[in-house]
Design a protein around this nucleic acid. Structure first.
Lengths: 95, 95
DNA sequence: TACACCTGTAAGTTATTATTTACACATGAA
DNA sequence: TTCATGTGTAAATAATAACTTACAGGTGTA
């Protein structure tokens, strides 16, 4: 999840979806100003991290549109929270 | 800050310092189980992000020890917070 | 002097991410 | 049919990040 958010493009994508609501890939690519394949890749990472979800829909004129929207994730990032979360990391010595 | 935390080693480092208190480089490297140069690199990134601070001290027997400790950072990671924070990102079109 | 600690960093290599380009396919309208 | 819209993804390249190895230098003690 942290890796997914550690990228300026992906922060802008989340921000755009949080502010402007759900949107489909091509339109979002135009609004953010990056290429569609690149946006597609970033959306894949965000979706894999559970930060956005997608839903395929048909527009009135029959085009297939893949809509994305943000989930209502929340994460508190503090030293104590990280100390707690780090326990679930694979132990270095196990590898 | 997110980039700094998007790495398992650095999460372990923050966790170790949060749990065990301040520590110096060589000792911390032994406890975490990574090489000292590698730890040094990660500590640099954490310090650059303001997540840890260092202080050079002299041990009783005269050795120079560089102690690190976590700061009391805190960050709420939600869609709304990201939408707010994204405003301060350099605009794509400015580049 | 030689050893055992401590510090830092530069250089080279490897691995991972990010990005572009090009392709393949579908639908509705001119 | 051709064009404009939408979808996805594979492949090659570029850019970063991570990691190892090898230095160089400091102090105190045997």
């Amino acid at each position: 999840m942290l890796s997914a958010l550690a990228n300026p493009h992906r922060l802008r994508i989340v921000a755009a979806l949080a502010t402007g609501g759900r949107n489909y890939v091509s339109q979002l690519a135009r609004e953010i100003g990056i290429s569609r394949p690149l946006l597609h890749l970033h959306l894949q990472k965000l979706e894999a991290a559970g930060l956005v979800v997608s839903q395929l829909e048909l527009s009135p004129d029959g085009k297939a549109l893949n809509f994305f929207e943000v989930t209502d994730f929340g994460l508190e990032l503090t030293p104590a929270a990280i100390a707690q979360a780090a326990k679930s990391l694979t132990d270095q010595s196990e590898q």
